[in-house]
């Protein structure tokens, strides 16, 4: 008999070592999330997966599951916080969905739809973030970066290259690449890298591939992100290819 906790009144079984998020997804229950990815170590920075546990707020992607926890996720109080967090991300970066290649397949956008985000609410910061188009096959549009570190994690843990890293602090924090020139073309990046496929938003783009799927047929045109929870169920961790490094990511 495995242990269980409750999530919005449902019994969720879990195995030792699983987080609340992992157990919930494995049981087919969706908890909204952005920086969490089933193939990588939980990171816990976006805070969109915030839940209420025994009356206190907690980050479900990093919280170890324990028997008897009472987890509340789909309640107004929690969704209001998630909505504000998504609004903050929209206000922080330059998110122009109408011209973004990722539109329709973007996790941030899909979360906004699901949470009913109609406006960023806050003053838009309109930061100046030049794109890096130096690489012949890959474009980096930092305007859309939400600092989830999935590319950092994938490049270090799976590709063994540490192509991406974070610099700056606070509101000036930003993504950089690992080369003396600071340009992507001078890094070890390769089209086959795992890091290129994990961006939840439209920062890392393969050139000449934009708008391949017509509007209406894109991932989140078809059904809301909450209805695609099982696709996010825990998978085997991605296999390390090169020299594994786990020390570039933050707060590990």
């Amino acid at each position: 008999m495995s242990d269980t906790f409750t999530l919005d009144g449902d019994e969720i079984p879990f195995e030792s070592g699983q987080t609340v998020m992992q157990a919930a997804l494995a049981a087919g229950h969706y908890v909204p999330h952005l920086c969490y990815h089933p193939e990588f170590r939980p990171h816990g920075s976006c805070k969109v997966c915030t839940v209420k546990v025994n009356g206190r707020f907690a980050t479900s992607c990093t919280l170890p599951a324990q028997a008897g926890l009472n987890v509340e996720s789909n309640i107004d109080e929690v969704n209001a916080i998630r909505r504000t967090l998504v609004q903050m991300l929209f206000a922080e970066g330059n998110h122009f969905c109408p011209t973004c290649e990722k539109s329709g397949n973007c996790v941030l956008q899909a979360l906004g739809y699901d949470l009913g985000v109609m406006t960023a609410g806050f003053r838009h910061l309109f930061p100046d973030r030049p794109v890096d188009a130096s690489h012949p096959d890959i474009l980096l549009d930092f305007n859309r970066c939400i600092l989830c570190e999935l590319c950092v994690r994938a490049s270090c843990e799976v590709d063994g290259k540490c192509v991406f890293a974070l610099a700056g602090r606070g509101i000036t924090k930003h993504l950089i690449v690992n080369s003396e020139s600071g340009r992507l073309v001078d890094t070890e990046v390769d089209l086959a890298d795992k890091a290129l496929s994990v961006c939840p938003v439209g920062v890392i783009l393969v050139k000449r591939k934009g708008f391949a799927v017509p509007i209406g047929e894109r991932r989140y045109d078809q059904s809301p992100i909450s209805a695609q929870a099982l696709a996010d169920a825990p998978r085997e961790p991605a296999a390390p290819a090169g020299r594994p490094c786990s020390s570039c990511e933050e707060g590990s």
């Binding site: 976006c46 805070k47 967090l85 606070g170």
Partner: peptide
């Protein structure tokens, strides 16, 4: 706002707001 490390969304953006 000056000292927020910038790791999590609420503090990074919220302290600036």
């Amino acid at each position: 706002a000056h000292e927020s490390c910038g790791f999590c969304t609420p503090c990074r953006v919220g302290t600036s707001m």
